[in-house]
């Protein structure tokens, strides 16, 4: 069942001669219980795409459908409310409220959605314990490591049972081991809870936890890999390069096609 759908979405910044097309006629859909990786070089439009899927940015054209509603056409106030109810977020940084404990940060979304009750609090404890933070409930973000903070952010993204969970470079500030732990847990929870998950990442090794990899280049979808074996091969090849795509054909990878650079296709 489709939980998130982008239909012919275009985003143009500026007007006239200064107009820049960041996303050009992109369509994609994510089913419940599916976790996709959105990859691409810098400037490919993947972050703009994520911002539109998150309802933080309105498309210039096309539709973004979540829970049967076109969030691109909503007014700002309504869209903010919609985000709080139907979308869960994990950002690459500035993720948590610094003066709230780990538990309070997660419960913030319950309060926001009127679900701050005994069951909600118990669910928070269970989720944080599941994420290995049972002993860190009363610690504030400043007292947690980067990996622990990111796990709190994941708990917060899922606690209010949203339709869609979005992550923007969730491993950007983590070492390799922690990055694998965080994304693996994230993927497991998305599958278990039957949410639709989208993760933007530069690190192709993390794709092995996703069900589908969508690459964007120059504002368009350039490649979709849905085959499990193919995804694992891609991640393995990236792993052999320690996660950093290197130019194999003399072309700078960040401006070209990372999957081709890593995967040799």
């Amino acid at each position: 069942m489709i939980a998130l759908e982008a239909i012919n979405v275009t985003k143009i910044y500026g007007t006239g001669v200064n107009a820049v097309t960041a996303v050009n006629d992109v369509s994609l859909s994510v089913n419940r219980g599916e976790f996709i990786g959105l990859v691409g070089p810098s400037g490919s439009g993947k972050t703009t795409m994520l911002a539109m899927l998150a309802g933080l940015l309105s498309p210039s054209d096309g539709q973004i459908m979540i829970a049967g509603k076109d969030i691109g056409r909503m007014k700002e106030g309504k869209r903010t409310k919609f985000r709080g109810k139907y979308i869960g977020f994990a950002f690459q940084a500035n993720n948590l409220v610094p003066f709230l404990t780990a538990q309070e940060n997660v419960e913030l979304l319950l309060r926001l959605n009127g679900k701050y009750n005994r069951q909600g609090r118990q669910r928070t404890l269970d989720l944080l314990t599941r994420l290995g933070l049972g002993e860190r409930l009363r610690n504030r973000p400043g007292q947690l490591s980067g990996g622990q903070q990111q796990r709190v952010a994941i708990a917060r993204a899922l606690i209010h049972e949203p339709e869609v969970v979005l992550a923007d470079e969730p491993t950007a500030s983590l070492d390799t081991e922690r990055a694998h732990q965080v994304v693996q847990t994230f993927a497991e929870l998305i599958h278990e809870q039957n949410r639709a998950g989208v993760m933007v990442t530069h690190d192709l090794r993390m794709c092995k936890y996703t069900d589908r990899v969508i690459q964007m280049v120059d504002g368009r979808i350039s490649r979709v890999i849905a085959d499990r074996a193919e995804i694992l091969r891609l991640a393995g090849a990236a792993d052999a390069m320690d996660g950093h795509p290197v130019p194999t054909n003399g072309k700078p990878v960040l401006a070209g096609d990372p999957i081709a650079a890593v995967h040799g296709i």
Partner: peptide
């Protein structure tokens, strides 16, 4: 600024 931006993103109204 970043913290407030994050709060607005996760659904806190103006």
């Amino acid at each position: 600024v970043a913290q407030i931006g994050m709060l607005k993103a996760i659904g806190l109204s103006n």
